[in-house]
């Protein structure tokens, strides 16, 4: 069974490392992008799922998601988990539902295990 490919778009290096290490140890293949532009570039590798932060340098998560969803068939349906510490009622993310399929995880309220579980659930990996 080929490993599922996860793209982590996260500018905070500590968070990125922790996420990446956890996902790798859970059996995923992980690519990390430190800003929006890098993230968009990395989608060319067509990951199976994207963990996307919102506040990102150069291009924010919402813009990246919009570009993906409007950019083609693959981009329109690739599952995305928003991993941000913005409150769900924050203006920057209140249009997130427009870009389904999308899931929202507030990092501070979920453990790394939660993230892995959610990822597995979406990708139907047992």
């Amino acid at each position: 069974m080929t490993k599922k490919h996860i793209l982590v778009v996260e500018d905070d290096t500590v968070s990125a490392s922790l996420l990446s290490d956890k996902l790798v140890s859970a059996g995923f293949e992980v690519e990390v992008a430190a800003d929006g532009e890098q993230g968009l570039e990395a989608t060319k590798n067509k990951p199976d799922l994207i963990l996307l932060d919102i506040l990102l340098p150069k291009m924010d998560g919402m813009a990246l998601m919009k570009a993906l969803r409007e950019g083609g068939e693959w981009g329109a349906q690739v599952p995305i988990i928003i991993t941000s510490n913005l409150s769900p009622d924050d203006g920057a993310i209140n249009k997130v539902a427009t870009y389904a399929p999308v899931f929202y995880l507030m990092k501070a309220e979920h453990s790394l295990d939660d993230v892995v579980e959610k990822t597995k659930e979406i990708l139907k990996v047992v």
Partner: peptide, 16 residues
Amino acid sequence: HELRTPLTNLTWTVEQ
């Protein structure tokens, strides 16, 4: 948001 980010890192590190 600013507080949650380091808190997340701490939580996750402790989890690890």
